[in-house]
Amino acid sequence: MSPDFPRLEAKKVTQSYGYRCILNELDLVLHGGEVTALMGSNGAGKTTLMKVLCGLIKPRSGEVALFQAESFSLFTQEGYLFDDLTVEENLNFYRQFFNVSEESLEEMKESFALENLWNMPIRHLSLGQKTRTALARTFLMPASFYFLDEPFGALDQVSHENLLKVIKHLRQEGRHILIATHLMERAQGLFNRILYLEKGKIRE
């Protein structure tokens, strides 16, 4: 593992909703150049953990430290897309917002087969099409860590294979991709590590 790769360290992270403890003094280290699977039952706290790691939720206690890293990009089912704008308008907005080149946008358009959806408003897309657009938005953002929350569920076989290609490419570039999923069989051989989140703790 290259020492220049980004690293994320979570130490004794605790988060709770009301009396329910979701993350209980959790310790975790993520290295660049790896793909990690995050597994756990429904409500185990996978999404909460991802949001804590990328700073969207402040933990009750503990800390998350970054080394050699720029930023995070997060994919969730919400998509972070504007319903009334087309796929092109959404992705172009984010391209300019993240200050990335038009070539990157073209790559994402091709990778997620968005050509035919290009001029369609988000509100007219199916769940799978919306997921592809949201994934393109996620990967358009330059980041050291990519957190993907259940990305495989709504994708067809071709889109699924395209997503795996993008993930492998990012891994080669030294990025870390953390994927929360129940569908392990759809990504056989992809993961460097498999983590289980149970009772607020990580088990490897």
Binding site: C54, G55, L56, S71, F72, S73, L74, T76, E78, G79, Y80, L81, F82, D83, D84, F97, F98, I122, M141
Partner: peptide, 16 residues
């Protein structure tokens, strides 16, 4: 209104 529909505000918060 446009930000609440797709939870875009949460996405914005990842940008410094």
């Amino acid at each position: 209104e446009s930000e609440t529909r797709g939870h875009v505000l949460e996405g914005y918060r990842l940008t410094k």
